[in-house]
Simulated scan of single mutants.
Amino acid sequence: AVSMVSALSTFFPVLATSSFAAVLTGLSAIWLLTWINTLGIVTSGIVQLITTALKIIPLLLVAIGGLFFLKLKYFLPFNASGTSAFTAITATTTFTFFAFLGLESATIPSGSVANPEKTIPRATLLGTGLAAIIYILSTVSIMGMIPSSQLSHSLTPFADAAVLMWGNGARYWVSAGVAIAAFGALNGWILIQGQIPYAISKDKLFPAIFGKVNKKAVPVSGIVIGSVLVSILMVMNYTKGLAEQFKFLILLTTTTVLVPYLFSTAAYVLIRLQNKYLQPHNHWPATITLSALAFLFSLWAIAGSGQETVYWGFFLLMAGIPFYVIILWKRGK
């Protein structure tokens, strides 16, 4: 929502200067898509398909076109953080990984997907691969075209890069592409924020209200409650005293999501061990290597969120344990 508002500021400059206008626009998008997602997963899927198709073309034009306008001096200094290169890379890795969170999301609506055994793995690998290509090419292009001092304050870096390549007119269609991309991403996240609590509630590990569905088989309660929380978080970003807390919560989100990733890397080895179809001995070196690398990467990304964030994440996880013990006990009874 924040990215969408920034992109729209190209068309409506007031969004860059008025926090009230920015918040109102962001909230409007959140609740419009919340309503759309209550109409059913097919409707949400149509919106996702259209926005994905519309966003990729302008993003790739900037990402690939920018490679012909690079100035190597803009990549220097490599590390302007005032810390060691390793510390800077570690911190950057965690922020970058925030952009990849949700790479497993294709599995979430699996009950509503045709031929999920083939469709979901393909969607996950193709989606993550395409995102990685766009991320890398666009980051290299933009950082190589715009000085870091200017880039760090830019609300619309893609549009600024497009102006350098094709003139002022390009700013508008690229900003439109970025706004559409953010709108589509927001649609996908709102779909997911209802499906995850719904799945947990069906396993009797979450309050029953999250398991209720409407006539379109949509878990409306989870979507609405999630949108309320998202709305509060977005307002924080436009409140001077809470902007740092917004950044902190992004890091905290990454940290808490990485904990299940740690468990998943360990589970990967166990699943292969238990499944007779996945046990050829010649695959074990690759299995163990892949699992170990993923486990170490997750630990590294957690470390990059900083000491305070890790402590808070640990505190929240520990605070939740008594509640889940009670839930499991009641479930056992």
Rank of each mutant, 00 (worst) to 15 (best):
A1S: 13
F11S: 08
V14A: 14
S19K: 14
A22Q: 03
L27V: 09
L33K: 03
N37G: 10
G40Y: 11
V42G: 08
V47Y: 08
L49V: 08
K55C: 02
V62I: 15
F75H: 05
F75D: 06
S81P: 12
S81V: 13
S81C: 13
S84C: 10
F86V: 15
T94L: 10
F95N: 07
F100L: 00
A106W: 02
T107V: 11
A114F: 00
P116H: 01
E117Y: 01
I136N: 04
L137V: 08
V140Y: 06
Q150K: 15
L164P: 00
R171I: 07
G188M: 02
I190H: 08
Q195R: 13
I196D: 09
P197R: 08
S201R: 13
L205E: 05
I209N: 10
G211Q: 07
I223F: 09
V228H: 09
V228K: 12
L233Y: 13
V235Y: 03
K240W: 04
F248A: 04
L251T: 05
Y261H: 10
S264F: 10
L278C: 00
T289D: 02
A303V: 13
S305C: 14
S305E: 05
G306P: 13
T309S: 06
G320F: 09
I321P: 03
I321Q: 05
P322K: 11
P322T: 12
K330P: 00
